[in-house]
Amino acid sequence: MKVLAVSVGTARPLPWHGRTLLSGIRKTPVDGPVEVTPLGLVGDEQGDRKHHGGPDKAVLLYPAEHYAAWVPLLGPLAQPAFGENLTTTGLLESDVVVRSIYAIGTVVLQVTQPRRPCYRLAAHHDVEDLAVRTQRSGRTGFYCRVLSPGHLAAGDPIELRMRPQHGPTVAEALRARSDNRDSRLYGASPDTAKESR
């Protein structure tokens, strides 16, 4: 298990349905160690602090293994194409158990929940129903809280510190939290969509 890219982004204008949103989904890989605090990576921002970020969604991980599956729809992709902070290898939603603890560099993270993408992901790639497609595919990535702040960098190994003996995987938690009514909102306008990035 390894970190392939560490990325941050400032909140910038993002056009969507004739209006302009603020979003930090357009991230850029960072060279060298990055400081990680209980609220996330230093230099990373969220445009909608009500639904994005916070201690339980401080760091977003996305498996690099998923990139190839998106090429037919989105074309060649450069990391981080999905607004993730950490692009990883070896950590899939079907294997990662919620509440598992991982060490990366001098940072300790705990898995909290699957990502439930909203219209910002669709706007980022200019694909109207991309949030719905991502949700249904199960290739969503997942959030972590920061148990121990520190520094991490691209190339760092990911060490499993604790895996609960009982509990859902990220994929199981995603299925349990999803229903058709919510899924219809993922591609909606900012006035109706309520889910997080």
Rank of each mutant, 00 (worst) to 15 (best):
44 D>M: 07
98 V>E: 00
189 S>Y: 09
51 H>E: 13
24 G>I: 04
95 D>Q: 13
55 P>Q: 03
25 I>M: 03
25 I>K: 13
6 V>D: 11
111 V>E: 01
100 S>I: 10
40 G>Y: 02
132 V>H: 06
197 R>W: 10
83 G>C: 03
96 V>E: 02
1 M>D: 11
195 E>M: 12
67 Y>A: 07
162 M>A: 15
18 G>M: 02
33 P>D: 14
100 S>V: 12
20 T>Q: 09
5 A>Y: 15
19 R>P: 03
28 T>A: 10
141 G>P: 01
84 E>C: 08
65 E>A: 11
94 S>N: 14
185 L>C: 00
192 T>V: 08
112 T>E: 09
32 G>T: 13
67 Y>G: 05
52 H>V: 00
115 R>I: 01
60 L>I: 01
155 G>P: 08
137 S>V: 13
19 R>F: 02
141 G>C: 03
116 R>F: 00
134 T>E: 05
91 L>S: 02
107 V>E: 01
40 G>I: 04
57 K>F: 01
37 T>C: 05
37 T>I: 08
107 V>F: 03
75 G>Q: 11
14 L>C: 03
12 R>L: 14
182 D>N: 09
111 V>G: 06
106 T>G: 00
197 R>N: 10
27 K>C: 04
14 L>T: 01
17 H>R: 14
119 Y>L: 08
100 S>Q: 10
54 G>H: 09
188 A>Y: 04
136 R>S: 13
19 R>D: 06
181 R>F: 04
38 P>L: 06
124 H>P: 00
76 P>K: 14
172 E>N: 07
114 P>C: 08
57 K>M: 15
